[in-house]
Every structure is written in C-alpha cells, then in structure tokens.
Simulated scan of single mutants.
Amino acid sequence: MTNQPQLPIPSHFDRRQVGEVWRVNYQDLAAAAKTWAKDHEIKPAAEDKTRICLVAIDVQNTFCIPQFELFVGDRSGTGAVDDNVRLCEFIYRNLGFISSIVPTLDTHTAMQIFHPIFWVNHAGEHPTPAATMITLADVETGVWQVNPAVAYSLAGSLNEDNYSLLQKYALHYVQKLSQDGKFPLTIWPYHSMLGGIGNALVSAVEEAVFFHNIARQSQTMFEIKGNNPLTENYSVLRPEVLQGPDGQAIAQKNTRLIQKILDFDVIIIAGQAKSHCVAWTIDDLLTEITAIDPNLAKKVYLLEDCTSPVVVPGVIDFTDQADAAFQRFAQAGMNLVKSTQPMENWPGIVL
C-alpha cells in the first residue's frame, strides 16, 4: 500500500453536504468500506510499519455547521465547512496511510464557568455570550460575580460557605489565566451540550472516520474533553487551570492521551478552532515534547488548510494570533503542510 498513489474519493462522499447534518447509515457504509479495502488492497492498520495518527480536534456541529452556536467561519465566512471538505478528502485519499484517528469532542453542560448562567451583575443579569470577556478587574470590583444559585448545583447545597468558596475560586481562576498568559475568560454561548446534536461530529466527518475504522480495522479513539465545570478546556491535553486557590487539584492534564499520541511515528493535527482548541492543544503537545526530546517536534504535521480561527465580525478576530502561534510551532520543528499535498512529499516523512 505504501508504494501506491493516493486513493480516489469514494462515490458516497458529497462535498456539497459537508455543511449539513444527516444520519450516517453505518451498516451500508461498513459493507462499502470492506469492499473498498478489498478492491484497493488496503491492509489492516495493525500491519503498518509507520504508525500515523490523525488528531481531529472538535470537528463537531457546534463549531462546523453554519446554523450552530459557535460556527468557525474565519474571515471568509465559510471556514470550517471548507476545512472539513478538505479533511474528509484527506482521510479518503490517505486511508491506507492513516493508522488511527483521534476525534476530540468538546462536551459541556450549562453550569460551567464560561457559560452565561455562571455569572451575574448587580442587576442580576447574565453576561452577553460571545461579547463578554471577564477580566481580573471585573471580578475584583464586582462587575461580574458568581451566580449564587450555581453553588447549589455545583456543591449540592446553597449556603454562604459554598458560595464564598466559589467566589474565591472565580477570582483565582481569572488571576491564573492572566498570570499564565492565557486568553481572558470568554463567556461563550451554550454550546456542544452533552446529549445535544451540537456535540456530535459533523456528519461528513463521522462518515469518513467510520469508513476508516472499518476499512483499516482500526478502532476510532474518541476523546471527550471540557466537562469540568470549573475550568475551560481548550486543549485536549490539559484544562486551562489545574489547581484551586489553596493549591488543591481541580483537574489534571491528560497524561494517558499524551503518551498515546507520542507513541505514534507521525502525528497529524487538524480541526477547530485554529486560534483556540487547536492552538492550545499543539502548544501543550510541544511543551511535552520539549521536556522529552525537542527533535520529536519533527514528527508533528499541522494541516493548515483544515483549521480556521475564531472570527466574530465586528467583535473579535483571532486570525493574527492563530497565525503567529503556527509560525512559532514551525520554528520549534513542527511541519506546516497542506492536506492537498501527497503525504509522500511531506518533509521528513517515511511511509
């Protein structure tokens, strides 16, 4: 397989439907994948000499379908849809090279620190999502305070002690973000809600991932992140804040996934959004790599045409920050590549 050219795109894939939601017909798709593997002499992933992992970050309806809550449109207005057309085609063309796919799933409930209900002002109003960033000064001066009712749901009872502890933690949280050079606390619309349709993979991507699973006989390695109510979790490898104000652990970095990813010979990264979950995941991966062996950065390939930054027209544009982050990753030894380039032409890769 490794000496063969890129594969054709299967006839079931329709790029015009990538921005839509539909039910994947698993049984028919499984039969088609088995036939496809036989016709194109695609071997099981267990036989791969070069083990290649594709990490697809948060390729979910919430971020990738125009009608959903946090569609990543970038400056073009169609960013995530265009990215996913290319991502699906990349998976199909390189089906015989990709050993494993790790789709991450941003997964939330309503009462989390970055959702409106968590905060109130003196009038009892919640912050406007996507237009509010809560700063350290906002919390110190009481512009925004923890909603007292949240303490009941998060701590199991509503009393003064629980509320004061939560308010103390909130102050610590925004302080920690500032100290660590993280983005300010952004209040997002309710999104990627557990049990909701926004949480699901984009149908076209799910279809491609399932097709790969059957054709390569390689279990898709889904990774859930973001369900801790007390911290944002842009990176799949670690939450934004790991400790409370008294040093107690409130979250942990994902050591298991870090080790699993680094065990591959080649790591390919794509997904949404370039400025947030993708950038912070890569940054955390680079931190781990630097601590082990900086040369390992050379085995990381970033699909720069399969990811887009957060842009809210007239409100915020993270394009420049995202591009600067990717340049920093490249300077550290990671490879910026296009999904349309044949993998055998990527720098330094051995297939």
Rank of each mutant, 00 (worst) to 15 (best):
Asp39Gln: 13
Val72Met: 14
Ile52Gly: 09
Lys49His: 12
Pro44Glu: 07
Gln60Asn: 05
Lys49Tyr: 08
Asp48Arg: 03
Cys53Asn: 14
Phe68Asn: 06
Gly73Glu: 14
His40Asn: 14
Ile42Met: 04
Ala45Leu: 01
Asp39Leu: 11
Ala46Pro: 13
Arg51Ala: 10
Glu47Ser: 14
Thr50Asp: 11
Phe68Gln: 07
His40Arg: 11
Val55Ala: 07
Cys53Val: 15
Gln67Gly: 08
Phe68Tyr: 13
Ala56Phe: 08
Lys38Asn: 14
Ile65Gly: 00
Val59Phe: 03
Ala45Asp: 03
Glu69Cys: 05
Val72Gln: 09
Val55Ile: 12
Phe63Cys: 02
Arg51Lys: 15
Val55Met: 12
His40Lys: 06
Ile52Lys: 11
Val55Lys: 01
Glu69Ala: 14
Glu69Trp: 01
Thr50Met: 10
Glu41Ile: 12
Pro44Asn: 05
Glu47His: 11
Phe68Ser: 04
Phe71Val: 07
Pro66Glu: 02
Lys49Met: 06
Asp48Pro: 08
Arg51Leu: 10
Ala56Leu: 12
Val59Ser: 09
Cys53Pro: 10
Pro44His: 04
Phe63Asn: 02
Cys53Asp: 12
Lys38Thr: 15
Asp39Thr: 11
Leu54Arg: 06
Lys43Asn: 08
Asp48Val: 04
Cys53Ala: 15
Val55Ser: 02
Val72Ser: 13
Ile57Leu: 05
Asn61Gly: 00
Glu69His: 09
Leu70Val: 13
His40Val: 05
His40Ala: 10
Asp58Met: 03
Ala56Ile: 07
Ile65Asp: 00
Asn61Tyr: 00
Ile57Glu: 02
Ile57Gln: 05
Gln67Asn: 14
Gln67Val: 12
Asp48His: 09
Cys64Leu: 03
Asp48Glu: 05
Ile57Lys: 04
His40Glu: 07
Gly73Leu: 09
Asp39Ala: 11
Leu70Glu: 11
Glu47Tyr: 10
Asn61Cys: 01
Lys43Ser: 09
Leu70Gln: 14
Ile42His: 04
Thr50His: 11
Ile52His: 07
Ala56Arg: 06
Val59Cys: 11
Phe71Leu: 10
Arg51Ser: 11
Pro44Thr: 06
Pro44Ala: 07
Ala56Asp: 14
Glu69Ile: 00
Ala45Ser: 09
Lys43Gly: 00
Lys49Trp: 06
Leu70His: 10
Thr50Val: 13
Phe68Lys: 06
Thr50Gly: 06
Gln67Thr: 15
Glu47Leu: 12
Gln67Ala: 15
Ala56Cys: 13
Pro66Gln: 08
Glu47Val: 07
Arg51Thr: 10
Ile42Asp: 05
Thr50Phe: 08
Phe63Arg: 03
Gln67Lys: 15
Leu54Trp: 06
Glu47Phe: 08
Pro66Met: 05
Lys38Gly: 12
Val72Asn: 08
His40Trp: 10
Thr62Asp: 12
Asp58Ala: 01
Pro66Thr: 03
Ile65Glu: 00
Cys53Met: 13
Asp48Leu: 02
Asp58Gly: 01
Asn61Trp: 00
Lys43Val: 12
Ile42Glu: 02
Lys49Pro: 01
Arg51His: 13
Gly73Val: 08
Asp58Ser: 04
Lys43Met: 09
Gly73Cys: 13
Ile52Glu: 07
His40Phe: 13
Glu69Val: 06
Phe68Ile: 01
Ala56Gly: 15
Cys53Ile: 12
Val55Glu: 07
